[in-house]
Computed example of a mutant assay.
Amino acid sequence: MTTSYAELKAQIAELEKQAFQAREAEISNAKNKIREIMQAYSLTIADLGGTAKVTKPRKPVEVKYRDNSTGQDWTGRGRAPKWLEGKNKEDYLIK
């Protein structure tokens, strides 16, 4: 007798649930072991060579060119916009 598609999907869902629960239990056990070892040897994250990468928010690029008649602008980076095609970009330079 063959197993139906619906039955296989139900089995997959149950196995995924079991796998998630097993992973959560293993992670919890690993964290406890790590915590115990770190406490026993008075270790810190810095002792392990771990570094937290801190990223600073980037300042937006300032606009260099503006078409005052339409209000459109461009930073001067990347491909030039359509509104600037065939025109001298120096005429639109913000001073």
Rank of each mutant, 00 (worst) to 15 (best):
Y5M: 07
A6Q: 06
A6F: 14
A6S: 07
A6M: 08
L8V: 09
L8P: 04
L8H: 01
L8K: 06
L8T: 04
A10N: 02
A10E: 03
Q11R: 11
E14H: 10
E14G: 01
E14F: 14
E16F: 05
E16T: 02
E16W: 03
Q18G: 07
Q18H: 12
Q18A: 11
Q18W: 03
A19M: 09
A19P: 06
F20A: 15
F20P: 04
Q21W: 14
Q21N: 11
A22S: 05
A22C: 08
A22V: 03
A22F: 08
A22K: 11
R23Y: 14
R23M: 11
E24T: 14
A25F: 09
A25N: 04
E26Y: 13
E26L: 14
I27V: 15
S28W: 10
S28Q: 05
A30G: 13
A30S: 11
K31N: 13
K31I: 09
N32T: 15
N32W: 12
K33Q: 13
K33R: 12
I34F: 12
I34W: 10
I34Y: 10
I34V: 15
I34T: 03
R35H: 14
R35Q: 11
E36S: 11
E36F: 13
I37M: 09
M38K: 02
M38Y: 02
Q39P: 05
Q39H: 15
Q39A: 13
Y41F: 14
Y41D: 09
Y41R: 13
S42W: 10
L43K: 05
L43C: 01
T44L: 01
I45S: 15
D47N: 05
L48A: 02
L48F: 08
G49H: 01
G49N: 00
G49A: 00
G49P: 00
G50I: 14
T51S: 11
A52S: 15
A52M: 15
K53V: 13
K53D: 05
K53C: 04
K53L: 13
V54T: 06
V54C: 06
V54A: 14
T55W: 12
T55Q: 11
K56F: 04
K56P: 04
P57D: 02
P57Y: 11
P57C: 08
P60V: 03
P60G: 04
P60W: 07
P60L: 07
P60T: 00
V61T: 05
V61L: 10
V61I: 12
V61A: 06
E62S: 14
V63H: 02
V63E: 02
V63K: 07
V63S: 04
K64T: 07
K64H: 01
Y65W: 00
Y65K: 02
Y65E: 00
R66L: 04
R66G: 01
D67R: 01
D67C: 03
N68V: 13
T70P: 01
T70M: 01
